[in-house]
Amino acid sequence: EFTQISGYVNAFGSQRGSVLTVKVENDEGWTLVEEDFDRADYGSDPEFVAEVSSYLKRNGGIKDLTKVL
């Protein structure tokens, strides 16, 4: 089950073990991109978060400006 990723309007994530599946949706709710990120592939949590965040930004993730990150 996908849940909204904090700080984004149209990005959602689903966690299974160490694998986080993220997706970005358009205004109609269609999935634009979907990608798996395995936490085990990264040396640290900040590196993992930075990679996921960068992916979302590159692929149309819209920041939720009503929330302070």
Rank of each mutant, 00 (worst) to 15 (best):
E1M: 12
F2C: 09
T3Y: 13
Q4K: 14
Q4H: 08
I5H: 05
I5A: 04
I5L: 10
S6Q: 12
G7H: 05
G7A: 04
G7D: 04
Y8N: 06
N10I: 05
A11F: 03
A11K: 00
A11D: 02
A11C: 14
A11M: 03
F12R: 04
G13M: 15
G13W: 15
G13S: 13
S14Q: 10
S14G: 02
Q15E: 06
R16D: 03
R16C: 12
G17T: 02
S18N: 07
S18H: 05
S18F: 06
V19F: 02
L20C: 14
T21Q: 02
T21E: 01
T21I: 07
T21R: 13
V22C: 04
V22Y: 01
K23D: 00
K23L: 06
K23W: 12
V24S: 02
V24K: 01
V24D: 01
V24F: 04
V24R: 00
E25V: 15
N26W: 05
N26M: 06
E28D: 11
G29A: 05
W30G: 11
W30S: 10
T31G: 06
L32C: 09
L32F: 08
E35W: 13
D36W: 08
D36V: 14
D36R: 13
F37E: 00
F37P: 01
R39T: 03
R39L: 04
A40I: 06
D41S: 09
D41N: 12
D41T: 08
D41Y: 08
D41H: 12
Y42M: 01
G43S: 11
G43C: 13
S44G: 05
D45F: 13
D45K: 04
D45N: 07
D45I: 08
P46V: 15
P46W: 15
P46T: 14
P46D: 15
E47A: 08
E47D: 08
E47F: 03
E47Q: 07
F48T: 00
F48L: 03
A50R: 10
E51M: 12
E51W: 08
E51D: 11
V52F: 03
V52T: 00
V52G: 01
V52L: 09
S54Y: 10
Y55S: 02
K57Q: 13
R58T: 08
R58L: 10
N59F: 11
G60H: 05
G61P: 04
G61C: 15
G61T: 06
I62Y: 07
I62G: 02
K63I: 14
D64A: 10
D64G: 08
L65P: 13
L65N: 11
K67Y: 14
V68P: 13
L69T: 13
L69F: 09
